[in-house]
Design a protein around this nucleic acid. Structure first.
Lengths: 151, 151
DNA sequence: TTTTATGCAAAGTATTTGCACGGGA
DNA sequence: TCCCGTGCAAATACTTTGCATAAAA
């Protein structure tokens, strides 16, 4: 049920970009290197700052444009949180949901094809007459490490 | 499990504002009248346009400021959707979740204290070591009316 | 060599803030 | 009357677009 391995998919992402007709440029590589290995939700500005350490000439606009492409290819997904919705994180295969640490921002994925959810959706369909096409489930909490650290 | 009644909470909201030390002004009333009875997700601009029909001198800034207060008082909640997160809708008592029609935007509420969800959260807590504090569950689909109308 | 990608600057959106005036209580 | 609330204008953020240059293939 859980994806705990921290795979660095940089090579895979670069291959995917090339396969889809995109050129492999230094700025793109810098952004991909950051995002393909991060377990944290990053905003375009965060990405810009981090990727600049690898490629100082990088412009913020290129970050936006690269995010757009990676999202199109299903490699990156936008994350919605109560306070902001500009965060991005690597998208995992299949139907995945997130558990987000409210202290450190660490993200853990779990899949949503749990019987409970399916039962709930069936109930809701029957009772409302809606045809349900999509569901969003996101959990917020405090991770193991943060719980041990303080209070 | 479902809240199907379409209660117009205008009076209740106005009472709540006054109880919390806010003045009952014409612009605020116009915004409250729109939001307290809407079953649809509205953006600040939508609210502005609609409330202007009732109070033409209304400024967009006042809409933002009123939304802020209503949100603070727990009367209004922000709704996140794949494409945008600037929508608002009346917040219902207790732990509520939304089922949103992808065609017409009609929103139906249901409560999330379903056994399935609780079981899932317990599983996730055990397996990850996280302490879960909050969950977001939102369903997207097509409502009865829209399904009957076209295709 | 050809064509895509980049970075800068400028233009759009969305939202917030400063401030003098107006209207609720 | 007193003070909060309002609308305007300006400021701030965030994101997208136009365009000449740079670099991938």
């Amino acid at each position: 049920m859980f994806k705990t391995e921290i795979a660095d998919c940089t090579m895979e992402w670069l291959r995917c970009l090339r396969k889809n007709g995109y050129r492999l440029t230094a700025p793109r590589k810098a952004v991909v290197e950051i995002m393909a290995s991060s377990q944290y939700i990053l905003t375009p500005t965060d990405i810009f700052t981090l990727a600049r350490e690898r490629y100082p000439k990088l412009g913020l606009v290129t970050v936006y444009r690269t995010i757009e492409k990676l999202e199109e290819l299903g490699l990156l997904q936008r994350v919605h949180r109560p306070s902001d919705c500009q965060g991005f994180i690597a998208a995992y295969q299949g139907h995945q949901h997130m558990l987000i640490c409210q202290k450190c921002g660490l993200v853990q994925f779990f899949d949503g094809d749990h019987d409970g959810i399916n039962d709930l959706m069936k109930d809701v369909e029957t009772q409302t007459g809606y045809k349900i096409n999509e569901h969003w489930l996101q959990l917020f909490g405090v991770c193991k490490k943060c719980r041990q650290k303080n209070n």
